[in-house]
Design a binder for these strands. Structure first.
Lengths: 217, 217
DNA sequence: AGAATAGTGTCTGTCAGACAGTATCGC
DNA sequence: GCGATACTGTCTGACAGACACTATTCT
C-alpha cells in the first residue's frame, strides 16, 4: 500500500468593482509565508470543518476583506499541479465576485495585511504564485459573459441609470458602444425594471432602473 | 493548533460521442465501494505522485476505459461539500471529453467493470453520487459552446462531410438547422480546410473537410 | 441663451431563416 | 428517367451600427 499524499486545496478570489471607468480588482499584500510581502489575489486554505462548499470557502475568505455580503460569487476554473505552490502539490479553485460600486469603500482594513484596488487589465504589481494567470482567466470569464449579452447589474448600485450601466459595460469590454443600440437591446430585456424615480444630476435627470427579481448574471 | 482535515480530491469525466443521431455519454458500473454496482461517470481519486495536473488525472482515468488518446479534455466545474461522498468532505472536478465517432468501439473491456454508452440527454440509469447533476452540467457546457458557434470537430472522424458536421451539431443542439445558413457560416470560418477528396456514398459524393491546424474547440 | 446630459427616430448595410432551384450520383 | 443526396441562388424580414434629432435640466 502506497502512502497517500493529500494535495493542498485552496480557493482564490478575484473581486471586481467598476469605478471611475476602471475595472478594478482587489489585491492583498500577503503577511505570511509563502510569498510573504508579495501582492496576490485574496485566498485561503479550504477548511472542511468550517466550509460547506468551495463557494462558501470563497465567501469566508472575502468576509475578512470586505464588510458586505456579496451578491455574486461564481467559479471560474481550477489551477493545479506540483509546482505552483512551494508547499507541494496543490489545487486552487478560482472564483470571481462582483462588488457594487457604492460599496467600494467597504474594505476591512487591518494592521497585518494591506489591501488595494488595482487595475484588473494592467495590475500595478506582479502577483504571487500563478495569480497573474488566474486574474487573466477571471477577467476573460467576466468579459465573455458581458460580451454574450449578460448585464453586470451586480456591479451597480441598487438603483442606477442606463448611462451608468452602459459605462460599466463599456469599461468591462474595453470599447465604446452606441447609445441607441444599447438602449434598444435593453428594452427587450426582462432583467431591468424601470422605476418612477429620477436621478438629479448636474443636467437633465435620468430615469432610474433596478434589477428584476429573477435576474441572474 | 487544530487538526487539519484533508478533503478527498477526485476527478470525474463525461466522455461524449455522437453516434446514430444520439449524444452518448460513457457510464461505468462501479465495481468497488462506495456505490458499488451503481452506474456512474468514470472517475477516480487524484494521485499526486502520478498526476501532474487535474486534467492529467482525468486523462489517466479515461486511459483505463478507452484505448485512444483523446483530442480534447476540458474542465466544466467543481462539485464539493461534506455530504456528496460517503467517505467525507470531498471535492470533485468535472471534465468533459470528446471521442471521434469512428472511435466509439475503442472501449477497453475488462471483467471487473461494465462500460456502456448511454443517451446523455436521458440516461438509462440513475447515476450514483451527484453524477446526474454533473452530467447535466457537462451537457449544458457542451451545448453552450456549440450554440455560441464553436464547431465540435473532435466528435467527427479526421475527414468528414459538411452534412455529417451539421447532423452532429443538430444532435447536440436538439433542433434542426437550415442547410444553406449553416454552410454560409462555415464559409467564413477558418476552422475548416476543404480537401480534394470526396466521400463515395449511395448518392452524389460529398466533399470532405478536415479541421485546420489552429483549430481549438 | 447655451452647455450638457437624457432619450428617440431614421436610415442602411448585414445577415440569418426560408425555400426554391441546380448538380451529380446510384439504380 | 427517377429518386436521393449535395450544393447554390434568391428573397425577405429582423436587427445592429451610425448618426441626427428632440427633450430637459443647470448655469
Amino acid at each position: 500500500m502506497l502512502e497517500i499524499i493529500y494535495p493542498l486545496v485552496s480557493v482564490d478570489v478575484a473581486l471586481f468593482c467598476v469605478d471611475a471607468e476602471r475595472l478594478q480588482v482587489l489585491v492583498v499584500k500577503r503577511a505570511h509565508e509563502p510569498a510573504a510581502r508579495q501582492w496576490a489575489l485574496p485566498g485561503g486554505i479550504l477548511k472542511p470543518h468550517l466550509d460547506k462548499s468551495l463557494e462558501a470557502a470563497a465567501r469566508r475568505v472575502l468576509a475578512h476583506k470586505v464588510s458586505v455580503e456579496l451578491p455574486l460569487v461564481d467559479e471560474v476554473c481550477t489551477f493545479s499541479g506540483p509546482d505552483r505552490d512551494p508547499r507541494g502539490w496543490s489545487v486552487s479553485v478560482l472564483f470571481y465576485a462582483l462588488l457594487p460600486r457604492d460599496k467600494i469603500n467597504a474594505l476591512v482594513r487591518n494592521k497585518v495585511e494591506a489591501l488595494e484596488w488595482s487595475n484588473a487589465s494592467a495590475p500595478g504589481h506582479r502577483l504571487a504564485f500563478d495569480h497573474d494567470h488566474q486574474l487573466a482567466a477571471a477577467v476573460k470569464k467576466l468579459r465573455t459573459k458581458v460580451e454574450a449579452g449578460k448585464l453586470p447589474l451586480h456591479l451597480l448600485s441598487e438603483k442606477f441609470t442606463l448611462t451608468q450601466l452602459q459605462r460599466t459595460v463599456e469599461t468591462i469590454l474595453g470599447r465604446s458602444l452606441d447609445k441607441s443600440s444599447f438602449r434598444r437591446q435593453l428594452k427587450s430585456s426582462s432583467d431591468l425594471v424601470e422605476l418612477d424615480e429620477y436621478e438629479r444630476g448636474t443636467q437633465r435627470p435620468a430615469q432610474l432602473f433596478r434589477a428584476s427579481e429573477g435576474f441572474s448574471f
